[in-house]
Amino acid sequence: MSGFFAMGGYAWYVWMSYGAAAVAVIVEILALRLRRRHAFDTARMAQDADAAGPATRPLADLRSNG
């Protein structure tokens, strides 16, 4: 097993490559999760504001300005 991790003396190179790929995949999947949640939250907020009607109009205006 330790022979496997040693990679015949090339452990640094092999594991730096595959490790970076693993980190990149994890980061990309997490970023996608966050983006999805954010997309739904914003859509929900926009629709709640619409449903609440003219009473919340100033707030909606504020958002579209900022």
Binding site: M7, G8, G9, Y10, Y13, V14, S17, Y18, A21
Partner: peptide, 15 residues
């Protein structure tokens, strides 16, 4: 294991 490059060649499976 590759004869000339040793185990370093295994990086090509990602590269």
């Amino acid at each position: 294991t590759d004869a000339t490059q040793g185990d370093a060649y295994r990086i090509i499976f990602l590269h």
